[in-house]
Design a protein around this nucleic acid. Structure first.
Length: 744
RNA sequence: GCGCGGUUAGCUCAGUUGGUAGAGCAUCCCCUUGACGUGGGGAGGGUCAGGGGUUCGAAUCCCUUACCGCGCACCA
């Protein structure tokens, strides 16, 4: 040991402090310590007296993470914010449960697995359903350990003993119960309705799985008897036998509703019927359009209103049906130019606008144009569910952070259409229903005992579809807690906070609707929405741009604590955040600063030098009476700060709290108080020295406690070293220490 | 078209109920002070997007314009 070190370390403080803080050497060991303690589980906290028996519960249900996924920056933020909430409330003495969960992520996983099959030269159509399901289950369960270890790496103090998976039997049972109840209450129906269909993936979609894309294509004006219609999709027009115009359009007053008109069409003469409907925009195009109810939402609505025939033109794979005559069997993309050629040769093309820009719906995975199709699927009537939810939300019973998400949510709820919950993929929760293909009737059949169709007495078959992922994840808060009889449901429901990404606010709305429907109670009091995590330049991360930041690279480089607090400071709820490495690097320095602050405090307040008591309770119950005037002032500043930040923690203003603690620790405590202390310890009288030593110990402990939710690893490591290596007293976990007293 | 945000220092963003504009990073200058150079001290830099209004007083409240982002619907 060189001379400098000798001077610095006269009291034999833990060796570790002689080197900079090393997250790599710390984090896994500390996480192991926490897990071993069992205190992630609130029951153990109560049992060991860390939490009072009658303490109020505090519950967060983790949004189920894709079991096949890898931790991305957004997850990093989720885990950080929810862990902050959890640790804060645990330290405040609440019976705190953070319940982790994994999502089978129906379609997401399906796409991944289908690609894997493709690589192996296999096709899902050659594999028996049960086997395929089992293969994907094995694949998912094998992969899930990956994401779980990544969640641990983030320091998440969730209760792994209560971990749930969306395909767990008890979750499925709850979901089935809801399906049955919806049916019993007349809120479920099997209907032939328009669904968004991906011809490549062979399934219907939720809105969120559809990506809007702007395309520039030719736009055709085509003669349709006495009219001219316009379209960008001539290949859908074969069956168009209704021509629609606004009832008040002066140009077409001569044509009467229901009037028949003979005209020459693509494949020969047809008879068209005039329909008057005010949905038509007189300003658009020629003010006349023909309709394709089977493949278009507006057209479908018109057909429903006027009880018109609906005919399928394009099959589920995107090929033309026999109605297309000579074009039957062709894929629509191949058929389009040929159809145009034919129309042109018949003199039916009036003009072509070459560059027409419009938005088309595409599959968010494969980019294939979504082909609406009429299908028999299960639908949930949303209006009654939405109304109940709206009443609660508008009545102020759900707190939204930030508040404007409330408006976005209510706007969405007010415009809901019936929800298609059937998906045509194997990977998911099978729909417990029987289908009669002969008369197209569906029966909810949880007990698997229906064998004959009540209507036509024909045979029924098992519904091969699975539930939309959102239908099951929409029941997450009560399903995970064991509704209706589970002990946890009774203790921890309703939960306190739902923390999730702002762009899936509709998931939150669905949880509110379904929870109200089944439990009659709002599933949570507060909705906390975080924004998107962008790259350092503020751009959306995407694989194609190559700007994806892997959070684990950053935690490896700067430590998890630096990553966590860097993600929190300056990040107000709902606002997107540019993740810059500079910022994370700053907080790595901060972790080290805390390390050195501790080193100084331990060194300068060592027993040998100053003869202060190291009795833990004497430090923690520090009174102003024990201190000299200067320290009384410092104590008051610190106490006021604790009071302030405790309030802000309760208001979920973590970005403020973290920033204030950073400033206090560095620029007040270290830069001012510690500097001033050097003089006190070298020149002051015994009373001042003792007072200062006690205050420094107290302040350090307070800083560590209050920073613990944000930077759990370094604070816990310091705490352990202080308690076991230097000061006396039982070694306890900072994780279950009491939050600093703010009521002095 | 309807709805929701945003526009503050070079960059990223704070700014709680209206009371003389803040932080981090970056820039510049100084300091080998015995916890830490992953350090310390200091400096420069903003007519708070434009316009109007309410007020003794507006970054903050109201109206309006422009631009950026997002959601919903539509796109025949």
């Amino acid at each position: 040991m060189d001379k400098k070190k000798e001077i610095l370390n006269p009291a034999g403080i833990p060796e570790k402090f002689l080197k900079p803080y090393d997250p790599k050497d710390t984090e896994d060991r500390i996480y192991g310590l926490w897990e071993k303690s069992g205190y992630f589980n609130p029951d153990n906290c109560v049992e060991n007296g860390k939490t009072d028996k009658d303490a109020k519960p505090f519950t967060i249900i983790m949004p189920p993470t894709n079991a096949n996924g890898s931790l991305h920056a957004g997850h990093g933020l989720v885990m950080t914010i929810e862990d902050i909430m959890t640790r804060f409330n645990r330290m405040r003495g609440r019976r705190t449960l953070w319940l982790p969960g994994l999502d089978h992520a129906g379609f997401e996983t399906w796409v991944v697995y289908e690609k894997k099959l493709e690589k192996e030269g296999r096709s899902r159509f050659d594999i028996e359903r049960k086997q395929l399901y089992q293969e994907i289950m094995d694949f998912t369960l094998t992969n899930s350990s990956n994401i779980k270890s990544q969640i641990r790496k983030m320091g998440a103090s969730c209760d792994w003993s209560r971990e749930k998976f969306t395909l767990d039997p008890e979750i499925v049972k709850t979901v089935y119960g809801t399906f049955q109840k919806l049916s019993d209450d007349g809120l479920l129906y099997r209907g032939k309705r328009l669904v968004s269909w991906c011809p490549k993936h062979q399934t219907s979609f939720a809105d969120i799985e559809i990506k809007d894309e702007e395309r520039t294509e030719p736009y055709y004006y085509i003669k349709y008897g006495p009219f001219t219609i316009s379209t960008s999709r001539p290949e859908t027009k074969f069956g168009d036998k209704y021509v629609v115009m606004h009832p008040e359009d002066k140009r077409y007053l001569d044509f009467k509703d229901g009037q028949k008109i003979d005209l020459e069409w693509i494949n020969g003469p047809i008879t068209a019927t005039v329909i008057k409907d005010s949905v038509i925009d007189m300003e658009f195009g020629t003010g006349v359009m023909t309709i394709t109810p089977w493949h278009d939402a507006v057209d479908f609505d018109i057909a429903e209103r006027h009880h018109l025939d609906k005919e399928q033109i394009i099959d589920e794979r995107g090929k033309l049906l026999p109605i297309a005559g000579e074009f039957a069997g062709m894929h629509i993309t191949k058929a389009r130019p040929l159809i145009i050629e034919k129309l042109r040769s018949k003199g039916l093309i009036e003009k072509v606008e070459e560059k027409y820009t419009h938005v088309v719906h595409t599959c968010y995975k494969c980019g294939t144009i979504i082909e609406p199709q009429i299908q028999s699927q299960w639908f949930v009537k949303m209006k009654p569910l939405a109304e109940k939810a709206l009443k609660k939300i508008n009545g102020g019973e759900v707190e939204y952070i930030p508040e404007h998400y409330k408006k976005i949510t209510t706007h969405w709820l007010e415009n809901l259409i019936d929800w298609n919950i059937s998906r045509q993929i194997v990977w998911g929760i099978p729909i417990p229903a029987k289908i009669c293909d002969a008369c197209d009737t569906g029966y909810v059949d949880l007990e698997n005992k229906i064998t004959k169709c009540e209507k036509c007495k024909g045979d029924v078959r098992q519904d091969n579809d699975t539930f939309d992922t959102w239908f099951s994840s929409g029941q997450w808060p009560y399903a995970t807690l064991g509704y209706p009889d589970g002990k946890d449901f009774k203790t921890f429901y309703p939960t306190n906070v739902m923390e999730t990404a702002g762009d899936i606010f509709h998931w939150v709305a669905r949880m509110i609707m379904l929870s109200l429907y089944r439990t009659n109670v709002l599933p949570f009091k507060t909705v906390y929405m975080h924004g998107m995590v962008l790259d350092g330049k503020g751009q959306k991360m995407s694989k194609s741009k190559g700007n994806v930041i892997n959070p684990l690279d950053l935690t490896a480089k700067y430590g998890t604590d630096a990553f966590r607090i860097g993600l929190v400071i300056g990040n107000t709820p709902g606002t997107s955040l540019a993740l810059s490495e500079d910022k994370i690097s700053t907080y790595k320095k901060f972790a080290n600063k805390l390390w050195n602050i501790t080193r100084f405090v331990l060194e300068s307040t060592s027993e040998e030098k100053l003869k202060i008591s190291n009795n833990k309770s004497e430090i923690d119950d520090l009174k102003a009476d024990d201190l000299v005037a200067a320290d009384v002032t410092h104590l008051k500043t610190l106490t006021d700060l604790m009071k302030e930040i405790t309030g802000e923690m309760e208001e979920y203003k973590f970005y403020l709290v973290a920033d204030k603690l950073y400033h206090y620790a560095w620029h007040e405590f270290a830069d001012k108080i510690l500097e001033e202390s050097k003089k006190v310890f070298s020149e002051g009288d015994e009373k001042s020295k003792r007072s200062r030593a006690m205050f420094l110990q107290y302040a350090l402990r307070t800083i560590l406690k209050s920073l613990h939710p944000f930077m759990p690893y370094v604070t816990e490591e310091i705490w352990q070293l202080m308690n076991s290596g230097y000061t006396k007293g039982a070694s306890t976990l900072l994780m279950v220490e009491k939050w600093p007293n703010s009521s002095r």
